[in-house]
Design a protein around this nucleic acid. Structure first.
Lengths: 261, 261
DNA sequence: CGGCGCCTTGACTTGCATCAAAAGTAGTGG
DNA sequence: CCACTACTTTTGATGCAAGTCAAGGCGCCG
């Protein structure tokens, strides 16, 4: 059993120092104009409705690497759409270990675990400079009562989170180290692709330790498997830069996780 | 890596043969009078609202052991409240293996994975004679637009499913066989307790194979661990009957999964 | 009675964790 | 710009928990 203790960079929530140099979209852009709206908004939303939604969203909260977006146990009041950068969700176990339960890329929504108990059950930590849009949940709920497509969208987002978690469960309980890592690489690849980025060349936003933690493996195993993949010429690894050379073979190895996400 | 192939008892959806002999609550009882309403309904629901909800719920669908409630890939149209008996949710992987992603006891809701893609991503299979209430989702959605507390309740149910899945993820990726099995026993114990049943003596509704599948272990390991627990006088095992003798030591072993559920 | 699931137990194997050490990278400050 | 510290990643050697293979027991039903 891995034994990776938590050493959170204990900075508190980001000050208003700008993260804009890395942020492609201006922090002022409205939901209607956001490049990512196709991912985080219901497609069917009428233009007037987008305006209404726009008015409740707090745009452009900047985070530095290691900053907490929220902490497990904090009162729940909002979910967050990632605008740029990457955020990880970690569950803290009773005995103080961290379990990474997900990585959230631009266009994805984090924080829905908090709804059940009105308090976040995970902590969310930026893996790199990031900015997020805060969506106050109470106001979102109200708005949902008037906008059926928004309500439906939220139900769908949450359901998607459930199916993703269940895929991870399957991965953890049935698959070998190689299969897990292949699946993660493919997942990142296809999520990049969805946002119009390269699906074959990208930079991993997370450390080997985070990958291992997420996949239930040790750092050493992650490193060894990546080396092995490289030796087989499936991928090229240069620190955190990854090039996928033989995506089909990688798919065959992973043997899991559906083509989308 | 375990390699448990699927041999589903391939009966189709239950015919109207009564399951009532095992079903404590009469199939005709309304939501307002149901013993389980505290578990599956929002507490704050006004009596008139319960009536409205009551009108859309299809009560008492009976299932025999091995029957499918729905199958992965079926069009999604409803979620189901378990009324009596036990149902498992299984995810079928690309290579045809089953992964059990949850066990659903009376008062719990199954089927929310289907919302995301408008099609069930899991199959639901009765582990014993069971009856369920069907909640047509489209009508539930409509009703939610008029009843804020119902909308909220559904958000909470889904969020709860998310946090539970994340606990399972943690269990699978960080815990030993003994820890996993202790956690499952405690989970069942406390869910029984919530419904007013004994928390120390109960019958496991699922086979060793299902337990192993759910927890990412082989049948042999499940059996060995249960024997070991019995030798240490933590529990008594007689086939599927379980008595918990030392719940505190069991908690110390499990080292995970919060006291509730 | 005989056959079929389900469960248990034992002997052996193996994939990944653990332990250890060193090389590579990044950040800080003199 | 280099020296110093601290972290991340890689690689190797070794051990163990859980998987695999195999055999036998128990309960159930036709």
């Amino acid at each position: 059993m891995p034994n990776q203790h938590a050493h959170p960079a204990d900075n508190s929530i980001a000050t208003a120092k700008a993260a804009t140099q890395q942020c492609h979209s201006s922090p002022q852009v409205s939901c209607g104009d956001c490049r990512l709206s196709a991912l985080c908004l219901p497609i069917s939303l009428h233009i007037d409705d987008i305006d209404k939604l726009d008015r409740i969203v707090q745009r452009g909260k900047p985070l530095q690497k290691g900053d907490h977006l929220y902490r497990a146990g904090d009162d729940f009041h909002a979910v967050y759409a990632i605008r740029s950068g990457t955020v990880k969700a970690v569950h803290i176990t009773d005995d103080g270990l961290e379990q990474v339960t997900g990585f959230y890329l631009p266009g994805e929504i984090i924080g829905m675990d908090g709804i059940a108990r009105n308090r976040y059950s995970n902590s969310a930590i930026a893996l790199e400079t990031a900015s997020v849009c805060e969506i106050p949940f109470a106001r979102m709920e109200e708005l949902s009562l008037k906008m059926p497509s928004l309500q439906r969208h939220f139900f769908q987002l949450m359901s998607k989170e459930i199916t993703q978690d269940q895929q991870l469960i399957t991965l953890l309980s049935k698959n070998s180290a190689e299969e897990r890592i292949a699946a993660l690489l493919l997942s990142i690849s296809s999520r990049n692709h969805q946002r119009g980025l390269s699906s074959t060349h990208f930079r991993l936003p997370m450390s080997r330790a985070d990958i291992g933690n997420y996949l239930g493996l040790t750092v050493e195993t992650v490193s060894r498997v990546l080396s092995r993949f490289q030796k087989q010429a499936l991928i090229c690894v240069d620190k955190r830069e990854i090039s996928i050379n033989d995506i089909n073979k990688l798919r065959k190895i992973s043997n899991a996780m559906s083509p989308y996400n």
